[in-house]
Amino acid sequence: MRRKSRNARKGLDGLVKALSSLAALTGIVFLVWIICEVLIRGAQAFNWSFFTALPAPPGTERGGVAGAILGTVGIIALASVIGIPVGIFGGTYLSEFGGNRFGGVVRFAGNVMMGVPSIVIGLFAYGVIVLTLGHFSGYAGAVALAIIMLPVIARTTEDMLALVPNALRESALALGSPRWKATAAILFRAAKSGLITGVLLAVARVSGETAPLLFTALNSSFWPRDLNQPTANLTVTIFNYAMSPYQDWQRIAWGASLLIMAAVLALNVFTRVVLRERKR
């Protein structure tokens, strides 16, 4: 029986510790690298016409994403109008009445749905809406995005409501309040910041989605007046322009990327600040 070398053991321990720190550093390096590249290249695209003009042919240096910005905002707004209420009420059901088998199945379906690739959801919206109506539309895109938001919002709603102590529920009901009023007035208010966080994070998530819009809203070079036809949007614009061989189009793609990234990161940072303040 021999004693193992203590120095060898400590050496290995030190090596692993160094590797761990290196790995964590690598993660941060990539994050910073990506953000910086997008910032630098995107900012180069920012000028007056970028924000105010409609898409123009390559080489003219006059094109912009004004229509796409409006289109993205419109599609996301519509998706939110559909997805948020259904998600919140679904999550409320799961939290308040969902201890049964049905609730279990819903939860399982929701979990699985959150893992479905967004492109498949786009295909679903294509089959159900685009094929039925016979044309592409911003409505189909909004529905696809709403479907993506739905399980996320339901899950966070359920989690946040579950955190509200039962005593609060019981005291509201003991006062004679009807269930719906207790929920709306008291529970939602108690879980307010958590619910808002969940919603904002879901919106942030779909803001950057491209794949579902590829087969639904497509893209357009015109102002988004009517969502019942292909609608201009930022993400598909990025896709089309980036894959093109034209320098000025690629620059616009970077500019649009910066817009999207800034919005998404801002929402994420904001929700964390809001939540942290609430916790105090």
Binding site: I34, E37, F239, N268
Partner: peptide, 15 residues
């Protein structure tokens, strides 16, 4: 690390 998770896929694509 969590922020890295929030970055949309298309940004990763561009980069």
């Amino acid at each position: 690390i969590e922020l890295l998770a929030a970055i949309p896929s298309i940004i990763f694509g561009m980069w």
